[in-house]
Design a protein around this nucleic acid. Structure first.
Lengths: 152, 152
DNA sequence: TACATAAATAATAATCATTATCGATTGACA
DNA sequence: TGTCAATCGATAATGATTATTATTTATGTA
């Protein structure tokens, strides 16, 4: 945790940004909720618990900055809010998501999956891929199992 | 064109919805701009050209209805607006997009690409896939070619 | 044909996420 | 210590979308 924070601090410094207390508090929340997909509002409320004096605009500004530096990814599942997700350190690609249409859960897939597909797209469409977004909508294993049980 | 409109009309009727003049005008705009990715506002302005009396809320309602019936797909490229895209008739899957980070162009890929990937996800994650979204961000063939020319 | 009813509409107010503004604060450095 | 730029908090403004409400339209029925 502290190590990742330290590396993020260096990353900011390398671009002439500072890790202010507000930014640190925000990054800490993201680190502590790495498995979640928090909206800006979610992050704001969580940061406020430890640093009540922080302003909403600062959280938005920080998240925007982190997204710009590719420390977080800004994603959108079609509900009206952007969500922010720490990028895996050293991950060459952006991970994928499974969104459950029953319970709303969002699970992550860290595996690559798209290696072959990207090769095809780059070659056949002459498109230089820089990033991607892949989301599957469907029924997660939990809801799936629950349905089976209810059938009995 | 008229045939597809007719089929969409039947689709609406099968769910006890009517193809009102406003809805027809909206669908016509979508059919005439199938290759584009129009926002609700875009659709509104285009419909207004032929049917100036239509209201913005009606366009939103119609687009929402069409999305519900899977006649259009609601997509989001990370700019603040939802875009609407006619689903190919009989297409089992939702097509993919190539978003150019230089010129902003959005190209479509109708090919499946994800067949194998979906099989893996369904099996290994025990996730019943109902739909998906796949978008690549990068440099399109036009900008790519342009850069090459400028190098000379 | 006239009327009752439900669906759909236009206009517009309200909401909600996000961004912009601006005066105050902080920290680095001369 | 004083200056300057970066950052911040509070909050106003914006822009997309949704909700409300009175009105219109279509449909079935007496």
């Amino acid at each position: 945790m502290e190590k990742r924070l330290e590396r993020i601090k260096k990353h900011l410094h390398s671009q002439s940004y500072k890790l202010t207390p507000q930014r640190e508090a925000t990054v800490r929340v993201l680190l502590e909720h790495e498995e979640d997909h928090l909206s800006a509002e979610d992050v704001y409320l969580l940061v406020k618990e430890k640093s009540p004096e922080i302003g909403l605009a600062t959280v938005y500004r920080t998240l925007e900055l982190l997204a710009e530096l590719k420390i977080v990814d800004k994603i959108n599942f079609g509900d009206g809010v952007s969500r922010f997700d720490l990028r895996q350190e050293g991950a060459a690609h952006f991970h994928h998501h499974l969104v459950c249409i029953e319970c709303g859960a969002v699970d992550e897939i860290q595996e690559d999956l798209l290696g072959d597909v990207e090769e095809v797209v780059e070659r056949d469409w002459n498109f230089k891929i820089k990033d991607h977004r892949l989301t599957f909508h469907g029924i997660c294993h939990r809801c799936h199992d629950k349905e089976k049980i209810e059938e009995n």
